[in-house]
Nucleic acid binder design. Structure first.
Lengths: 191, 191
DNA sequence: TGTACATCAGTGAACGCGCGTTCACTGATGTAC
DNA sequence: TGTACATCAGTGAACGCGCGTTCACTGATGTAC
């Protein structure tokens, strides 16, 4: 795959650096060095570091959606099976790619949300969650209440586990899994 | 309060910088400059930037717990009223201090979790949530399932709202509030 | 088929920047006697 | 009460570092004629 464009290879290098050394190590120069190119080369493909990061996040959302879809397909075709599969993939991705996951949902957002590639890939990931929640009745009068509930729950659990915050709440052993928590919600499907 | 110690004033300055200019602006030199002291002075009080950040986070957890307790006291003395009050305070703090909130739960953790001040203040904040969830039956066989459920839910909602991720799920108007979502859970109290 | 020219990705050197850190110093404060 | 001394918080200058960015350049590729 040496015919990959330099832009693509820089994004791949950025994903690897993020995985191995974390966000602070993610610089234009480090990506260029990993690809084996001069540190001035990335300027021909990205508008600064924020442009590269936007590309990395877009690629990250693709991998994220792939992971969720994979676990959804391996799950029972029932409504609860499908939403559990999506959420299991959500949790799995956050554990396998902690720095990338944190960057993708980064609050301090140095990211260009109008970037078309970002918009498309993040919309696909959200769509998977949305569709998995569609069979359920809203838990409040808000039409989107169930998906906001499920999304907040899985996202909060993933974030707290990554930060190891939950350890303070673990009297004995592991915290409940997302599967157990979703079961505990007793969501009702549309009649 | 000019008799405040320089250590305290540096932490206060750091909280202000975080609030006004975000995490990237938080440096030893910026804190020293805001206090009006030479940039070498902080070295007498903190072991580098990470030491200062640890102090800022500890102070942040105190403010966080104060906010939650304030809203809890203003709420009805019922189990649902109390846990809703805590969670409303949780959401309010995340909106009033977004950069600080993000730093406190930062995954890439350059923080020393063994710092006694951090341990004490974060434990107090967690204790408020724990106590508010105590009246409820666990939603799964895990004894802490309800507090993990509530914590994940409120933390996820706060984080997603800060990152504006939820906007993609808002067909019409605002997302459901944490109060509505907690109501929708129909948690059962201990008999 | 061959020639002249335009385009453009990548080079390598140089730049200025803000950062944390070091270090000899100063001057105030407290303590021993 | 007075003197000598130790402690220590803050100073200001200097350091090296990695960063993003700029810029003249080279060399390959494609195109017009």
């Amino acid at each position: 795959m040496t015919q990959d464009t330099l832009r693509t290879r820089l994004i791949t290098a950025g994903l690897e650096i993020l995985q191995e050394n974390g966000l602070n190590a993610l610089t234009l120069r480090a990506c260029a060095a990993r690809v084996g190119v001069s540190h001035a080369a990335p300027a021909h493909h990205f508008s600064g570091l924020s442009g590269l990061i936007t590309g990395i996040i877009a690629k990250g959302f693709t991998q994220f959606a792939d992971t969720m879809e994979e676990d959804r397909k391996a799950a029972p075709p029932t409504p609860l099976g499908q939403v559990t599969g999506i959420c299991t993939g959500y949790m799995r991705f956050s554990k396998e790619h902690p720095a990338l996951f944190a960057l993708m949902f980064n609050t301090s957002g140095e990211i260009d949300k109008t970037d078309p590639e970002f918009a498309a890939t993040s919309a696909r990931a959200y769509g998977l969650l949305h569709d998995a929640c569609a069979p359920y009745l809203p838990v409040t009068e808000h039409p989107n209440a169930t998906e906001v509930l499920v999304w907040s729950l899985v996202h909060g659990l993933a974030t707290l586990q990554l930060g190891e915050s939950l350890k303070v709440a673990e009297d004995n052993g592991n915290p409940p899994t997302i599967e157990e928590l979703l079961n505990g919600l007793s969501l009702k499907v549309h009649p």
